[in-house]
Amino acid sequence: MNKTRIFDHLVLLLGVAFMIGPIAVAFLTSTHDPYEIHMKGLMTSWGGDFVATYDKVLFEKGGFTGKVTGLAMLKNSFILGIGFAVGKIVLSMLAAYAIVYFRFKMGVVFFWMIFTTLLLPLEVRILPSYEVMTKLGLVDTYSGLIVPLLASATGTFYFRQFFKSVPEELLEAARIDGAGPFKFFVDILIPLSRNMIAAIFIIMFVYGWNQYLWPMLMTTDESFFTLVRGIKQILLVWVGAQIPDYNQAFALAVLAMIPPILVVIVFQSWFIKGLTESDK
């Protein structure tokens, strides 16, 4: 029994090392200066440039126009991530509520229409979407970044499945208790969906946080840059003439990981409940 336990722990530790390894290397590398990295490649030791690098990355204005700091990019990424997550949850909950609880003509057709948009990722419609945003004058705005991607078939589908699993009697009890459609939604359905909302929040936040193609197309003004773009930018700006600031790129990558990790840690207990358990 004891022996197997030690073996189990060994396997787990190996797994942890395997998962953490690349992140640790990225972090350690970011504490060295770029010349060293350029010559020796990835580092596995502590470099001593930690404060200088992270200070520079977070607070020094960079980019072509010198307008954007790492902190500003962090803010932009947050706005994108949270805007995405909240917007998608609100929209898909309302859509699912309509589909599940209201009998309107062609309800099933509408559901499948939403569902088939799963087959059409952003990349397929990226040019027309861009065209529409240009005509609406939404280029270089947060709305332009967020709104076109808000409709979520995945979210609608998850909420639809969840609402369908809510017992019919709950709706009937609420009707007898005098709750109309709005009250039922706010007082009963939203609190019941708590775990589901948390689960979808995580997924959508990370999705929004990691957006790359759409922000690149939609924003030319560097003050709208997100972290993910910033990493790329650092490697681009100094390319050619100088050695790229590898340390800064690594530092940004490490910084870019922290918020999604925090979101997952904060929401994970709900997340797991949302996916596995139902307290109906």
Partner: peptide, 28 residues
């Protein structure tokens, strides 16, 4: 239903799971 002056007890109780006993009774 809400205006018929009736109250119903369901087979599976149909209590609101996220509300306390007090709030379950008070909701109507």
């Amino acid at each position: 239903p809400a205006l018929r002056d009736i109250a119903m007890v369901f087979q599976n109780y149909a209590l609101y799971p996220h509300m306390t006993v007090f709030n379950n009774m008070a909701y109507g």
